[in-house]
Design a protein around this nucleic acid. Structure first.
Length: 329
DNA sequence: AAGGCGGGGAA
DNA sequence: TTCCCAGCCTT
């Protein structure tokens, strides 16, 4: 099984940018970006990030604002905050070379510690990510694998002579052949070893996870100024879109009406009244935002909108642009 | 153990 | 639409 998979991997592996380097820093950055972000999406962010911050020293010396700006649009912004904090933590000293050493860094959990230590240093620890979970679940026909079973089994199967290639090979198989919905079993290099394949119904493994419902959130936002020069606020570092900037926003709390939330927003900024511009919507994994957007003239400090903003904030500003475009259109 | 935390690709 | 992605942290 190991020989079949590794032969296939060395033949068919995708040419990905982080596979062209041995630099532990760049491999680390790639693994953090690839946490819950697909390869096709993450590639552009990786190129942008390592060009802006080519070394761990450069990252450690940067401001959080600059780091978040390089991360803008990539989501899960705690990853950027933790990566920045960890860079400050270790810059000037040698990189850890063990699983345990990497695990001690902020934002580095079991997956990332195994990935970086094995890929950059050949440390013998198996990665367990979504791909590996699916591959092992099918390989051994275990429908609801526990985290403990997954790590133990992955470590048992690890190819100790080349942990880097082995870990990447299992993930590559999961990403390109052993996919969730329509696995390409006929061309799978290791189908002869797969119990789910032998069962005749490979997609029954693993059983689908129960997911939390998407909750609807009503909110009001206020634009003062225009899209190039406007009043923006920085959100607290903990919580939703932490550390990012955007036009002032208030969520409609339980038992509150939209008008209540708008009054709270205007009172907070000492703005007497505002004009309704329109409504925009934005869905995240766990929240569906419905944002009523208002505009006002007010004596508030305006600045160029170069700060890092989320997609939600960009949509709010786009509403203003569309209104003004219609005016001249 | 469960919930919070973005955004987007693929079918 | 639905599923899930080279997960981690807090509670």
């Amino acid at each position: 099984m190991q020989e079949q998979l590794l032969d296939w991997y060395h033949r068919e592996a995708r040419d990905l940018p982080w596979r062209r380097t041995r630099d532990p820093y760049k491999i680390w950055v790639s693994e953090v970006i690839l946490q819950q972000t697909q390869v096709v999406t993450g590639t552009a962010y990786y190129e942008r990030f390592v060009e802006r911050f080519p070394t761990v020293q450069a990252l450690a010396e940067a401001t959080l604002e600059d780091v978040l700006q390089a991360w803008e649009g990539c989501g899960y912004y705690a990853r950027a905050r933790n990566l920045h904090a960890a860079a400050k933590q270790i810059t000037g000293q040698p990189f850890p070379e063990t699983y345990e050493g990497w695990l001690a860094l902020k934002g580095v959990g079991p997956y990332t510690a195994a990935a970086v230590s094995s890929i950059a240093f050949g440390y013998p620890k198996a990665v367990v990510d979504g791909n590996v979970r699916r591959v092992l679940s099918r390989w051994f026909a275990v429908k609801e694998p526990s985290d403990h079973w997954l790590q133990t089994t992955a470590d048992e199967q690890l190819f100790h002579a080349d942990p880097s290639s082995w870990n990447q090979a299992v993930m590559e198989l999961g990403a390109t052949i052993c996919t969730p919905k329509a696995p390409k079993c006929p061309v799978c290099p290791v189908k002869d070893f797969c119990k789910a394949y032998q069962s005749g119904n490979p997609t029954a493994y693993p059983a689908p996870k129960v997911r939390a419902e998407v909750k609807e959130v009503q909110a009001v936002a206020l634009i003062v100024g225009d899209q190039h020069n406007l009043y923006i606020e920085k959100r607290p570092e903990k919580g939703l879109l932490g550390g990012l900037s955007g036009p002032p926003l208030e969520q409609v709390q339980a038992g509150e009406t939209v008008e209540d939330a708008l009054k709270r927003l205007l009172d907070r900024l000492s703005v007497p009244d505002a004009k309704h511009l329109g409504t925009t919507e934005h869905t995240m994994t766990h929240r569906h935002f419905v944002v009523r957007v208002y505009q006002a003239e007010a004596d508030l400090p305006l600045s160029a909108s170069t700060a890092a903003m989320s997609k939600l904030d960009r949509k709010i500003l786009r509403l203003l642009q569309e209104k003004q475009g219609a005016l001249f259109g």
